[in-house]
Amino acid sequence: MPSISLRVNGKSVRAEVEGRTLLVELLREKLALTGTHVGCDTSQCGACTVHVDGRSVKSCTMLAVEADGREVTTIEGLAGADGKLSPVQAAFAEHHGLQCGFCTPGMVMSATDLVRRNPGATEAQIREWLEGNLCRCTGYHNIVKAVKAAAQAGGK
């Protein structure tokens, strides 16, 4: 079994994985980081979105071995060490951008990538960027509002 080492939420991690182990399986099952969710099996829903080297990826469509030597951030690693919510997390709470909470980690990780990349994102750009994340509860209205607010607040 391949042995890999990577950094997850700032901590060094070594793990034995099978070739077929998906990054999301490594996170959820071996590292008990269950904030990253699985909502589909065709790479559509985006609930499993995490950052690899700072970019949003679907962890259900990436092999754990491909994360060898990389820096992975999950929803558990987004808030500050003092527990302070990131601007995107805070904006989701402020604007009621979540209901059942299941798509939320992926949505927040994806939005975080956007606001870092494009702090001036317009509503249309936000809606287009979120194409890879499905939410069944909110109708997206408040998610878009939250992302816009976070972008205006300076992202990060």
């Binding site: 269950t34 990253t36 558990e76 808030a79 709470a93 909470g101």
Partner: peptide
């Protein structure tokens, strides 16, 4: 009122 449940959902601590 802002939601009490959000703190856990936004930080990946929900338990499904």
């Amino acid at each position: 009122v802002k939601r009490k449940e959000d703190a856990r959902f936004l930080t990946g601590r929900g338990t499904y």
